[in-house]
Design a binder for these strands. Structure first.
Lengths: 208, 208
DNA sequence: TTGTTGCATACATGCAGCCTGTATGTTATT
DNA sequence: AATAACATACAGGCTGCATGTATGCAACAA
């Protein structure tokens, strides 16, 4: 007799195996680091062999990129879910900030997305991923704030990148045991500092 | 007969060999990445054998840490040199910022200090190094600005870390080809935003 | 002072284990 | 039958350690 429940289409097989590999890799990459996790360990956790891994991914780095991509999308999802468009510009930014910091508390996420990610894939590749996921909502929030006259006009790309960097560092510091309140307060102060100064004292904005 | 110029004290030998190894490692770690640089390559560049390397350093990571330490000190030196205490608080911060961005243009420094460093040594170890070198002058500048009433009072550690993170990201972006003017403008706007603005209901602003 | 003796330091060499990527073989799907 | 999805075997390289060797050094002796 032939095993009846084992018959799966090729597409299903591929999807299942890829998902198993990504899940196993995510688990091990977050528990330990990228460098400390070997492909033998990953395939053992996934229940396949190294042949399957190298059939579906070009190399270990490509598997890592898939994990990062998935994790970045998950973080972005949590942020979008937490900052509905009904809020004011400032409130939306703060809600998004809190959601980001909360999302990054998931164990190992900071190392995966903020330490190993840039080092393994390079900053350019990470920026590309971030711009499709996490940074997107931040940039939209900043543009909305500028449109609503709640924020001075600045180069949007640069501002997005630098604020995102500050958020990233805050997430790392908080995970390392720093005061979340302190970091949150500074982040909000940095953003509030960009609100347009009231008319009486005209502040020298970077005119160009 | 024994060649007299070959006779060196043990301390001289150690110093010279360590310096050769660090110099070679710095060259290769900045040209390529930490992971892509093997110890055989390093010792060949330094003109010694792997035995010498493992005699002076516990492992490859320890050699890397020595390189990072030296490079961080070099950057801090350039910053201190460029921002004399004669400047006003705000001017000192801007001069320091420019000096930092300029120092980080040295080829490979961003990868060494901002990508590989945190990933290989961990953020905690990098913070410890930064706090002894680069971040120190930044924190002092911020404290001075707060004392001079040129900046609102915020948790100093958190503010230093977040601004440093923004500087780091700016250095990476500029190296990647982004507009240095844009990033400089945003960095200055972020710092200027922390000056005590006179809101309609709050404290009187110190005129300057 | 000079020479000798004993030990510590500074390396060089060889080995063991692991890992990555690929090439080849086998099984399941179409 | 052809192709995709795997499994297995292999080659090359790298890291860390263990062992071997030469050089510096300190103390003591003559």
């Amino acid at each position: 007799m032939q095993q009846e429940s084992e018959r799966r289409s090729n597409r299903d097989r591929t999807e299942a195996t890829r998902a198993d590999l990504i899940r196993a890799a995510r688990k091990l990459f977050t528990e330990n680091s990228y460098a400390e996790t070997g492909t033998p360990e990953i395939v053992a956790e996934a229940g396949v062999t190294r042949g399957a891994l190298y059939h579906h991914f070009a190399d270990k780095q490509a598997l890592f990129a898939a994990v990062v991509e998935q994790e970045a999308a998950a973080v972005a999802g949590e942020i979008d879910h937490a900052s509905p468009p009904s809020l004011s510009a400032r409130d939306a930014l703060i809600a998004g900030s809190d959601a980001y910091l909360k999302a990054m508390r998931a164990p190992g996420r900071t190392r995966l997305l903020l330490l190993d990610g840039p080092a393994v894939l390079g900053r350019a590749a990470m920026d590309e991923i971030d711009n499709r996921h996490g940074n997107r909502s931040l940039r939209e929030g900043l543009v909305a704030a500028m449109r609503a006259q709640a924020m001075i006009r600045l180069p949007v790309e640069a501002l997005t990148a630098l604020l995102a960097a500050a958020f990233d560092r805050a997430a790392l510091a908080i995970e390392a045991g720093a005061s979340g309140e302190d970091y949150r307060a500074v982040l909000i102060a940095l953003m509030d500092g960009l609100s347009p100064a009231p008319p009486p004292s005209k502040r020298p904005a970077p005119s160009r």
